[in-house]
């Protein structure tokens, strides 16, 4: 399967921060008992990381795990491996009550990076960006769409939204990163 596209392949913008579409990422929406040891080991096996605590997010390259709710986790793997990862989970947890759905293509992913990356997000999401640091995932809205974001490192954020909102998200992030719009707070 050769012609596989993300929503806004390769789009990027330089303003007070750099906004770029991050291409296809493998994402699995997992529902189940996150405290069960079988679940924890199955998730670790596909993601390579330990299940974090409330609102935690551990990302290691293209793999990772994020806590989405008491019974929901986001599993990250390379895009091409997502279907296999679902099969792996289905096998490992057979007979239990859980759900693993490949939602890789339902999402659009962006990175916002640079000295004012925090401010760009703070213009659009009702979140206290002063105290926000790596290791946490925040689900909220960015302007008028539901979104989630985490910090990969200081001044580099990854933003996830529904694929259909990609143009809107990119356009909005660009507005917030327009030259001359540094707030000067963070």
């Amino acid at each position: 399967m050769s012609d596989v596209r993300s929503a806004l392949a390769g789009a990027s913008f330089e303003g007070i921060a750099r906004v770029a579409e991050a291409g296809l990422r493998g994402m699995i929406s997992f529902r189940g008992d996150l405290s069960a040891s079988k679940v924890k080991s199955a998730l670790k096996a596909v993601s390579g990381v330990e299940m974090p605590g409330q609102r935690g997010c551990v990302v290691n390259g293209a793999r990772g795990l994020a806590w989405m709710s008491p019974d929901e986790a986001l599993v990250m793997v390379p895009h091409a491996e997502a279907e296999d990862a679902v099969s792996q989970l289905n096998k490992a947890l057979k007979g239990q009550h859980f759900m693993a759905e490949n939602v890789s293509d339902a999402r659009a992913v962006f990175t916002v990076s640079g000295r004012h990356a925090r401010e760009v997000i703070a213009k659009l999401a009702p979140v206290d960006m002063a105290g926000f640091g790596p290791g946490e995932i925040r689900r909220t809205r960015i302007a008028q769409v539901a979104a989630a974001f985490w910090m990969d490192e200081a001044d580099a954020l990854t933003v996830v939204c529904f694929r259909s909102g990609a143009e809107y998200m990119f356009g909005t992030l660009k507005m917030a990163a327009q030259p001359g719009s540094e707030v000067g707070v963070y």
Binding site: A7, Q144, R163, S164, Y168
Partner: peptide
């Protein structure tokens, strides 16, 4: 209105 104007006045959802 803030950033909500022109192309990004409202999300326009697009199919693939």
């Amino acid at each position: 209105a803030g950033e909500a104007r022109g192309e990004v006045f409202q999300p326009v959802r697009r199919t693939p």
